[in-house]
Design a protein around this nucleic acid. Structure first.
Length: 475
DNA sequence: TAAGACTTTCCTGGTT
DNA sequence: TAACCAGGAAAGTCTT
């Protein structure tokens, strides 16, 4: 089985499939200029890594620098090592920075070729592609945009490496591989003793840093979820912020409207407000005025959480068994965020299917994310069905109205659209578009109209039979 | 290589 | 007014 991350290769150690369906944020595009919530990024980041990035991470830095930790795994020592140059700029991305000396730039001529440590860039063969660089950055820093409980096993490692570097741990001694089979929720549930057991030398420090990180987080109030949800949410720390979800606040306007306006908004935006709370109360969605990879904000809300204990699928039911069958050796909580057969998208050059966006729209070329990853080959209606039988998404995002008859309802239509968009590597997906695709199924006899009911659809018998047969579900 | 399937995007117009 | 629904049209990828 391949390693969970192409960046970490622990030979001989089993990795498990991680959560493939994640709501991508608007800033999960090729850069992370789209800051996105009320989480005080700089404060929490400093809690995790008290080294200052000084000018390098200054949001208003005119250098337009982007930074990315660079790590590699040594097959000979079975340990992860960090490049002495864990950062590079995208404007000069053949130049390297020293994490321990954040302001000290190394020679631009000094590539990693002289180093036993492999860099991201060297892994990519020094593609002269800014897009690839951004994608890689986004991949390595994706953990910064989620609650730790939402981290995939890759992101656990990303956090581990990043934190180890920033805390100045001896990375050659850090047993990162011991954590590689843990997803975020499992990591968060580890006791200090278990941390130490996994990593005798640094386990205590890592545990404390994780707890520090967790206690520094603030969470957003769900938009469509009931008060019960609030109470159930493990993130409800009594400090719910009424700030609308950045993800959902983005949903309100059609994509073309966003595209149309973004460039203008961008051009009008005169500075990044470090007070992310204020930033999000203004519901700004435009990019920050520089290409800084902002490792601070967590791009998630409580709705993007796999452990919400509201399953409607009876754990004893055949559906649940079918759902779980793809993960024979994993715990329910973990498998609840996974889908059988799903893997992380491969970074293959490819155009996104469908009609190209109107190039005449202002700002299109700049705001349009680069979708170069291969989308999974699954049909939308099957995706919807899978979500419906997944307690991680039902009833949080969509739910059965009549499971036997195949009638279901979108609870958070835009969130489902974002899930679908994430699945297809298309961050521009909206419910508008998803619903259009759904309506095509009427003609094909896979969906039947449910008159007079908004957000309610019905699988045809044909679709139900096909889906249930494929998943060995009997009702 | 072609054709059909499928999805995405854009759009207009209508309803709630 | 916003959100949703309906469906035509175009254009792309994917599968066979």
């Amino acid at each position: 089985m391949p390693s969970a991350s192409p960046l970490y290769n622990f030979s001989g150690i089993n990795n498990e499939i991680d959560c493939p369906y994640r709501i991508p944020s608007i800033e999960a595009q090729n850069d992370t200029r789209y800051s996105s919530n009320n989480y005080d990024s700089l404060q929490s980041l400093s809690a995790m890594a008290d080294q200052s990035f000084n000018g390098i991470f200054s949001p208003n830095s005119p250098s337009y620098s982007s930074h990315i930790p660079v790590t590699s795994y040594s097959s000979s020592t079975q340990s992860i090592t960090s490049s002495p140059s864990p950062y590079f700029t995208t404007s000069e991305y053949n130049c390297m920075y020293n994490t321990n000396l954040p302001n000290q730039r190394r020679s631009c001529e000094g590539s990693s070729n002289d180093s036993p440590f492999q860099t991201v860039l060297s892994k990519k063969g020094f593609h002269d592609s800014r897009d690839d660089v951004f994608n890689e950055q986004d991949q390595l820093l994706s953990w910064t945009r989620k609650h730790p409980e939402n981290w995939s096993s890759e992101e656990v490692l990303d956090w581990l490496i990043y934190t180890g570097q920033e805390k100045g741990l001896n990375m050659s001694e850090l047993r990162a591989e011991a954590f590689q089979n843990l997803c975020g929720i499992e990591l968060c549930r580890l006791s200090i003793e278990e941390f130490i057991n996994l990593e005798p030398k640094y386990g205590k420090s890592l545990y404390e840093m994780l707890k520090h990180l967790l206690t520094g987080l603030s969470f957003q109030k769900p938009v469509d979820i009931t008060a019960d949800y609030q109470e159930l949410s493990p993130y409800n720390n009594g400090n719910n912020n009424p700030t609308p979800s950045p993800v959902r606040s983005h949903f309100g306007s059609p994509a073309y409207h966003t595209m149309t306006n973004r460039k203008q908004e961008h051009s009008n935006y005169n500075g990044y407000n470090n007070n992310t709370d204020v930033y999000w109360k203004t519901e700004r969605q435009e990019p920050m005025p520089c290409d800084v990879i902002d490792i601070g904000p967590y791009d998630f809300d409580v709705n993007d959480h796999p452990a919400v204990p509201q399953p409607t699928v009876d754990p004893c039911s055949p559906e649940f068994d079918a759902f779980m069958s793809g993960y024979p050796n994993t715990a329910p909580v973990r498998t609840a965020c996974c889908f059988p057969g799903s893997t992380y998208p491969q970074a293959l050059p490819r155009r996104r299917p469908g009609r190209p966006r109107n190039k005449s729209l202002p700002g299109d070329e700049e705001s349009r994310p680069h979708k170069d990853k291969k989308a999974k080959n699954q049909h939308l209606w099957e995706f919807i069905y899978d979500c419906l039988i997944n307690p991680a998404y039902n009833p949080q995002f969509l739910r059965w109205e009549n499971q036997r008859e195949g009638v279901f309802r979108f609870v958070q239509s835009e969130a489902v659209a974002q899930l679908w968009g994430g699945f297809k590597n298309n961050e521009n997906m909206t419910y508008e578009k998803l619903s259009r695709a759904m309506r095509h199924y009427y003609k094909r006899g896979l969906l039947e109209r449910v008159e007079g009911r908004r957000l309610v659809y019905k699988f045809s018998r044909k679709a139900l039979d096909r889906a249930r047969e494929k998943r060995h579900i009997t009702l």
